[in-house]
Amino acid sequence: MSDQSRQRRYQNLVEGYSGWLYRYAYWITGDATTAEDLVQETFLRAWRFLDGLQEESAAKSWLTTILRRENARRFERKQLDYSDVELDTVPTDNQTFDARPEVLALRNALQHLPVKYREPLLLQVIDGYTLDEIAEQFDLPRNTVATRLHRARQKLRKHLEGEELLIADELS
């Protein structure tokens, strides 16, 4: 591949997928600044391994895999585990959010959801992944994925109901 076409291909990937990757990173790290750093790292790595991407149609899942690996490396480097993320780094920049109450309540509920539930939900809802595709992406049995999604929705529902009770309480 010529240098120029390699550059153009890369630029298309950046412009086409940085938004998706940012949101993905945001929801697995719970933090806007870390998410951007993670997307930067992902694209640096993607450039180095660009020739490994055979088909453009596989680009999104290829990039998502790189991002997930980069995130895992981040944890290795910092010797943290996922529980730290859920508890400590809930985003502070609420002013950048869509402010409708139902969306805010749901975002809040999502932030309380462990990453292992949040991540497959994101792939399913935003990107239309099937259970089998998620199972493949995470290298997990299909049943495990189904159970996680099942629990994710139950937990969200419970959280939102709790929220409604609180609001009803305030109004009464």
């Binding site: 940012y22 949101r23 929801w27 806007a32 951007e36 959010f97 869509d98 409708r100 749901l106 809802v125």
Partner: peptide, 11 residues
Amino acid sequence: DLTQAFRVPVP
């Protein structure tokens, strides 16, 4: 609703 909630603004 989740579709909206997941769509945080991209910088």
